[in-house]
Amino acid sequence: MLSIGELARASGLSISALRFYDKARVLTPHAVDPRTGYRWYTDRQVDAAVLVAAMRRVGMPVKEMVAVLSGSDAHGLLDRHLGRLEQGLDDARRELTKIHRLLDARADRESTVVLRTADLLAAVGAVRFAADAESEFPVLRGCLFETDHDVLRLVTTDRYRLAVGTAAVLEPPVDPISVVVPCAFLDVAAGLLRRHRTVTVVVGADSITLRCGREQLTTGLVVGAFPDHRGLSPRDPGIEHTFSSATLRALLADAGDRVDLGVLESGEIVVGHPGTEQPVRFHVQVNAGFLLEAVDALPGEQLTFRVGGPITPLAIRPRSVHTSDPASAYSLLMPLQPEALT
């Protein structure tokens, strides 16, 4: 006699499958211990279990399994099931052919979005500094263009900082856009954009074109997956403090390679090491040059800093917008390894 575990190993069926086929009256045990409920099978039932496992793999219905094991037109049942499988395979081939055609048509279809050139230039200006022109990774030398409802979002990153800019969409695309554009192309296109009021951005399968009236520029898209900027965007409210852009530029002028941000118990954020008797909750240290570039790139006379802790990114945005707003512009700076303050 074989236990259910031994029959499972001999047949290739799992114990749970054998229990199911017992309840379905496909393969019932020779005996069941009334005290323990253990199922016991004979050696002859191994062949039946192997047949059940084979029929299970090809999707044979349970009722037909019973008929095959009973010997009632077994070969005819198997042949008819094979016919159904072949018909299903033909149907699947036809559907997959349709899917291939739809994908090819989708790839060939161009997506277009219309913007004010001034908005696009401002968005490029807000993010250009964070791209790494020397990176070995093409996507880090590029700028992500993605549509989000009535907004075109531009994103750049060199993995140490991230910048987001937005431009209002005048005519949204039929299908969402998410492509990486070489920053060098945007630099060249600036002259074209300054000569016109609106631009039509045309995105094809492997290229992007900027059309302004009768003038246009085209380049190939960057191949590769852009880093997930949404995963980096701060979600915790954190501690916020607003500075004037002019004050920040003055504080950063002689800051050296790094600058310290002290978060006081009062919630105020101080830049550098100004004398204060208030207790400091924690410090955040960032690259001073990167911070100055972010200050210069973001619009507005007042910028809001937001920090969540000493090792979380520093978020910088114009005072009038929020990083949780899909239409907002902001920058993130990764914190540096802390150094002792003197």
Rank of each mutant, 00 (worst) to 15 (best):
R128S: 14
V32R: 08
A315G: 11
L102Y: 12
R258L: 10
A17F: 02
S266N: 08
S111R: 08
T147A: 08
R195M: 14
P173L: 12
G213S: 10
A10T: 04
L2Y: 04
S245C: 13
G12Y: 04
R153S: 00
R194L: 11
V223P: 09
E134Q: 14
G12S: 05
L96W: 13
A288Y: 10
Y38K: 11
L96N: 13
F137W: 10
A48Y: 07
A24S: 09
G275Q: 13
G37V: 08
L291P: 01
R106N: 11
F305H: 03
G275P: 04
L140N: 09
P237S: 13
G309H: 05
R94A: 15
A92H: 07
G88P: 07
P227F: 05
A24T: 03
A49M: 08
V280Q: 05
Y160C: 04
T276S: 14
P138G: 01
P274N: 06
T36W: 14
V259Y: 06
P313I: 00
K98N: 13
A189I: 05
G88M: 08
V151R: 01
P34G: 07
V181R: 01
F145I: 00
L154Y: 01
T242C: 13
H81R: 13
A294W: 00
V222K: 01
V174Q: 14
H241P: 11
V307Q: 02
R94M: 09
L264N: 05
C143Q: 01
A126S: 13
K23Y: 01
V114I: 04
Y21F: 04
L170I: 13
W40N: 12
A297L: 03
G71W: 10
C143F: 00
T218F: 01
C143H: 00
H196M: 12
S331V: 15
S245H: 10
L193T: 11
D73F: 08
L336G: 03
R84S: 14
I177Y: 06
D296T: 05
P34H: 03
P279S: 10
C212G: 15
N287Y: 06
T218L: 05
L162K: 01
V259I: 15
P338F: 06
V155S: 03
R128M: 12
E86F: 09
D187P: 10
T200R: 13
F20M: 02
P34L: 02
V188G: 02
V222F: 04
V180G: 11
R194E: 15
E240G: 12
S11F: 03
L336A: 13
S72V: 11
K23C: 00
